[in-house]
């Protein structure tokens, strides 16, 4: 009859709280502060990881700008490279590199949660999946580096 009507918190139209009415206890709904992520280390680390994606995005935008400059012809490319050589840009790139590396590392460390791989009857241990990811990262980086330097 009444199990369902008795549970929500009550304020009157003006938002003033109504005191306890028998059989209608108000539930306390805790509110999350905007700084919830400061109190716990794990949450802080999580927020930093989330923030690093902003830098990943910034770099992606820079890349698009570069491509655009390339398409527009040698003149805009000159302007572009000049802008890239400024100290500001170099500092920015170093920061971006650091964050992107941080992002990649945390991402690879999380990879095993999403991938369950089996070899025969045995599940491949998490550490192996992480290792394979890092190895591929290294191999690709070296390959890309080699291409760039060779050209």
């Amino acid at each position: 009859m009444d199990s369902r009507e008795s549970t929500t918190s009550r304020t009157d139209d003006a938002g003033v709280e109504i005191p306890y009415q028998r059989f209608r206890p108000k539930r306390y709904q805790p509110r999350m502060s905007i700084f919830w992520w400061i109190h716990k280390k794990v949450y802080l680390r999580f927020i930093i990881r989330e923030l690093t994606s902003v830098f990943v995005a910034i770099y992606a935008v820079i890349l698009i700008v570069k491509l655009n400059a390339l398409l527009r012809g040698p003149e805009s490319w000159e302007v572009m490279t000049a802008a890239l050589a400024t100290p500001f840009s170099i500092v920015l790139h170093v920061i971006i590199l650091l964050f992107v590396v941080y992002h990649s590392i945390t991402w690879f460390l999380l990879a095993p949660t999403a991938t369950v791989v089996r070899l025969g009857r045995k599940r491949i241990p998490d550490s192996a999946i992480i290792a394979v990811n890092f190895l591929m990262w290294l191999v690709l980086s070296v390959a890309v580096g080699w291409i760039i330097l060779a050209v």
Binding site: L110, P112, T113, A114, T115, V116
Partner: peptide, 11 residues
């Protein structure tokens, strides 16, 4: 490992 369950579901 509910986190793993969710990630596998995303895939």
């Amino acid at each position: 490992d509910p986190a793993g369950a969710i990630q596998r579901y995303k895939v």
